[in-house]
Amino acid sequence: MQIFVKTLTGKTITLEVEPSDTIENVKAKIQDKEGIPPDQQRSIFAGKQLEDGRTLSDYNIQKESTLHLVLR
Rank of each mutant, 00 (worst) to 15 (best):
N25F: 12
D21R: 01
V5P: 00
L67H: 01
G35T: 02
I36V: 09
I61S: 02
G10H: 04
E18V: 13
D52I: 05
K48H: 11
N25K: 14
E51L: 11
L50K: 01
M1D: 02
E24N: 08
S43Y: 15
D58C: 04
Q41C: 11
K33F: 10
I3K: 00
H68C: 09
E24K: 11
T12P: 03
V5E: 01
T14W: 06
D32C: 10
T55A: 06
K11L: 10
T66G: 02
G10W: 05
E64S: 10
Q2T: 14
I44W: 14
K48S: 09
D39P: 08
L15C: 02
D32Y: 10
F45A: 03
I3D: 00
K6F: 08
G53I: 06
L15W: 00
I30R: 02
A46W: 14
D52L: 06
K29S: 03
D52V: 05
S20A: 08
E24L: 14
Q31S: 12
P38K: 14
H68L: 15
T55S: 08
V5L: 05
E51Y: 07
S65F: 06
L69F: 05
I3T: 00
G10C: 07
T9N: 12
L71Y: 11
I13A: 02
L50H: 02
V26L: 13
T12S: 05
G53C: 07
Q40S: 09
T7M: 15
P38W: 15
E64V: 02
S57G: 09
Q31E: 10
L69K: 01
E64W: 14
D21F: 07
K27P: 01
I23Y: 04
T7Q: 04
N25S: 14
P38M: 15
S43N: 11
D21I: 05
A46Y: 15
P37M: 09
V70D: 04
D39E: 12
F4E: 02
T7H: 03
D32S: 11
G10P: 00
R54D: 04
T22R: 06
L50Q: 01
L71G: 08
T9R: 11
P38G: 09
G35W: 05
L69G: 01
T12D: 02
L69I: 09
K27A: 07
P19Q: 07
P37I: 09
L50R: 00
A46K: 14
I30P: 00
Q40M: 12
G35I: 03
T12H: 06
Q40W: 11
V70W: 08
K29G: 01
T9M: 10
T14R: 11
T22E: 01
S57D: 07
R42N: 13
I13T: 01
K63A: 15
T66A: 03
I30N: 01
T66H: 14
Q31V: 07
Q62T: 14
V17F: 04
L15R: 00
D32P: 03
N60W: 05
E34K: 05
F4M: 04
G10R: 04
K33E: 08
I13K: 00
S57Y: 09
L69N: 02
I13E: 01
H68W: 15
K63L: 05
P19G: 07
P38L: 15
K48I: 14
I13G: 01
Q62D: 07
D32K: 12
K33P: 06
K27N: 06
P38T: 14
H68D: 06
I61A: 01
R42S: 13
D39I: 10
T66K: 03
S20C: 07
L69W: 03
L8G: 10
I36K: 06
L67D: 00
L69R: 00
K6I: 14
D58E: 11
P37F: 09
R72C: 09
I44K: 03
L56E: 01
G10M: 03
K27I: 13
I23T: 03
K6S: 05
F45M: 05
E24T: 07
T55F: 04
E16W: 14
E51R: 07
Q31A: 14
Q31G: 09
G53A: 10
I61M: 04
I44F: 15
E51H: 07
I13V: 06
K33A: 12
V26C: 03
G35P: 05
L50D: 03
L69Q: 04
V17S: 01
H68F: 14
Q62S: 10
R54I: 06
V26I: 12
V17T: 01
E18L: 14
T22W: 04
N25M: 15
K27W: 11
D52Y: 05
R72F: 12
S43H: 15
L8E: 12
E24S: 12
I36W: 14
L67Y: 00
N25C: 09
E51T: 05
V70R: 09
R54C: 10
L69Y: 03
L8T: 13
T7S: 05
I36D: 06
V5G: 01
D39T: 10
S65Y: 08
P38S: 13
V5A: 03
G47C: 10
G53R: 08
G47H: 07
K6M: 10
S43I: 15
N25T: 14
R72V: 14
I61D: 00
I36L: 08
L15A: 01
I3W: 02
L69A: 01
L69T: 02
T66Q: 05
V70K: 07
S57A: 14
K48W: 09
E64L: 12
Q62C: 04
V17E: 00
Q2G: 04
T9Y: 14
K63D: 12
L67K: 00
P37Y: 09
R54H: 11
S20N: 12
L8K: 09
I13C: 03
Q31W: 15
Q49L: 15
D39F: 10
E16Q: 11
T7W: 12
D39A: 11
L8N: 13
G35D: 05
L56T: 01
Q2V: 15
D52Q: 04
Q62A: 09
V70P: 01
T12G: 02
K29P: 01
N60R: 06
L56I: 09
Q2N: 10
Q41T: 13
R42D: 13
V26E: 01
G47P: 04
M1Y: 14
I30S: 03
G10N: 05
S20L: 08
Y59I: 02
T22H: 02
